[in-house]
């Protein structure tokens, strides 16, 4: 466990880590950050540092409480019952706990839908401001060549993929934006499972994927 983070080479950008700490990201992006922090102590420490910024800001100003609030509080803690034990979260070798929560179990619980050429996806239930999906890419297969209308983050959960830019293994996050057109290809060693989060629809470059895009919700 200790040296797990050293195997991760592609991290999440500081603006998203800060947004996660502030609690202001769209749900899908928070899910991506939570999944990555589950595997990456470097980014977990960075978020803790941004939490410390929040702590420092909160210290510096305030608004007086009403008369008698402290007596009210002391009465409340008197009544406070012992905290309920937090239910053990589901453990899964591939899905970090926050993803297992969204899927409702391990990999076997994922409701995959084919999207063509052997690639499958499962859209996770998040708020509509951004979309989170699990992607299943058979070993050696590729995701159609696409550009992006907004920001797309892709994290590897199993196997590995490479595109024109770099190689990505478990825990690595690729960040793509408007300027990037890429064709991720799963490594031949194993089927690749990823979490992908987008704040705008992908733009596929060839006509056929573009025609079916509305039906795939990507």
């Amino acid at each position: 466990m200790t040296s797990m983070e050293e195997t991760i080479h592609h991290h999440i950008g500081d603006d998203l880590l800060m947004g996660y700490s502030a609690g202001t990201l769209p749900e899908a992006f928070s899910l991506m950050v939570a999944a990555h922090l589950s595997l990456c102590d470097t980014c977990r420490a960075a978020v803790a540092a941004y939490d410390a910024v929040g702590g420092a800001l909160i210290e510096d100003d305030g608004v007086e409480m009403t008369e008698g609030s402290i007596e009210h509080a002391l009465a409340r803690i008197e009544l406070a019952s012992a905290p309920e034990p937090v239910p053990e979260r589901k453990r899964c070798a591939v899905l970090p706990a926050p993803l297992a929560d969204y899927v409702g179990g391990d990999l076997a619980s994922v409701k995959w839908r084919p999207v063509g050429m052997g690639v499958r996806q499962a859209i996770l239930p998040t708020s509509g401001k951004a979309t989170a999906r699990l992607l299943y890419i058979p070993a050696g297969a590729s995701v159609p060549d696409h550009g992006h209308g907004g920001r797309e983050l892709t994290m590897v959960l199993q196997g590995a993929f490479s595109d024109e830019i770099a190689s990505f293994a478990r825990g690595d996050v690729e960040t793509a934006d408007e300027s990037i057109v890429h064709t991720p290809i799963a490594d031949v060693g194993a089927d690749c499972i990823c979490l992908a989060v987008t704040d705008a629809p992908l733009r596929f470059r060839s006509l056929i994927p573009r025609l079916i895009q509305p039906f795939l919700k990507i």
């Binding site: 202001t24 990201l25 922090l37 589950s38 926050p98 401001k129």
Partner: peptide, 11 residues
């Protein structure tokens, strides 16, 4: 506000 999932607990 939008939900904010927590990372896996540390051991």
């Amino acid at each position: 506000r939008d939900r904010r999932p927590e990372p896996e607990d540390l051991p």
